[in-house]
Design a protein around this nucleic acid. Sequence first.
DNA 1: TTTAAATGAATGAATGGCCATTCAGTAATT
DNA 2: AATTACTGAATGGCCATTCATTCATTTAAA
Lengths: 200, 200
Amino acid sequence: MKDIHKHSKIITAATKVFAKKGFFNARISDIAKEAKVADGTIYLYFNNKYDILISVFEEEIGKIVEQIKKSLAEETDPRKMLEIFATKHLQSMKKNKNLAEVIQIELRQTNKLIKDYRNNKFSDYTDLVEEIIRLGQKQNIYCLDVEPGIAKRIFFGALEEVSRVWNTSIDGHYTVDEISGQLLKIFLSGILLPEKNAAR
Amino acid sequence: MKDIHKHSKIITAATKVFAKKGFFNARISDIAKEAKVADGTIYLYFNNKYDILISVFEEEIGKIVEQIKKSLAEETDPRKMLEIFATKHLQSMKKNKNLAEVIQIELRQTNKLIKDYRNNKFSDYTDLVEEIIRLGQKQNIYCLDVEPGIAKRIFFGALEEVSRVWNTSIDGHYTVDEISGQLLKIFLSGILLPEKNAAR
DNA sequence: TTTAAATGAATGAATGGCCATTCAGTAATT
DNA sequence: AATTACTGAATGGCCATTCATTCATTTAAA
């Protein structure tokens, strides 16, 4: 029953409540009840409601980012790197659905509303994709007419949207490998039949 | 100065205020001020605050969807169809940045919070992509190993994320054609150099 | 044609409910 | 006994919504 223990209990509870009701509809008392502490206790660990949300981002996203960065560090083939990125990201999102929901729905809001809050860990994270693409271009594996800044958005936007199947869809039965396979297939080779490919 | 006029003035004002502050931070009085009407007037045209947001979705998104459907109706080549879809969508988002912001940030929230509200127009809209892909597969232009349901998400997720450059990015200087060109290039032919393509 | 009544739109101040935050008091730990 | 951690009821501010009143326009009567 020490500081850190209660802190992370509140973080977990908050993630769950934010995921379920959204930040603005979440009551401090909901979070307190979920974490099995008194309302006031929350204010011993956080300054205010926003601070809880920011902490969810900083701490929970941070874990994922670190883990993926570590996996990437061991690989040099840009094709494999994108595969690792996609697979690990999807795994994380499937494993922690509450966090996924909060990232997908609340992070954008917050980035907009709190202009002076930039989740740098998250930006760094998405920027990884851009770096991988530049690397692949240098190695003459990826086309030079691909703009890495746009391609990053395409890859990451696609990744986020497909990861939503587990939170929103009726047909959330896809596996991580199926989805990441489809994403990589399309991102790397496109959807045209090979013989049609010369056209572009 | 009749009914419909004031109704749409409020819709436009609300879109602007929601885009700027987000739904939950938007005050009815903000919207009233922006629309140059009294607070109470808003309740002559809408039942409550949520009703305003829902109306924004229904009416404004509806216009875009109709317009794009119309453009698509004149085309039969699935490659061209995706091009039209992407280009028109990006054009709309670039033209009406407030609406874009509201769609990208508030629509998901609302879909989650109001379980019994499904923006069917919007689902129909994204489903168009799925249909186009199936069509292309039937015509032997698109690979059969692409899962249309996932591919739809990939395409649409990418499209939404790239369209955000105009709202969020410092480098929002890209043109619609540049971005849609990159998206189609990647989605159709992938990012691998042609000679590497056999690998997959 | 003028004047008066009726209708309906618009207003904005007042209400009431909600909930983040506080803090005086209680319990646990040293 | 003193310090630290926790509690949860009470406070105060905010804001969606209401509604008594005003204003504008139309209709009817004189």
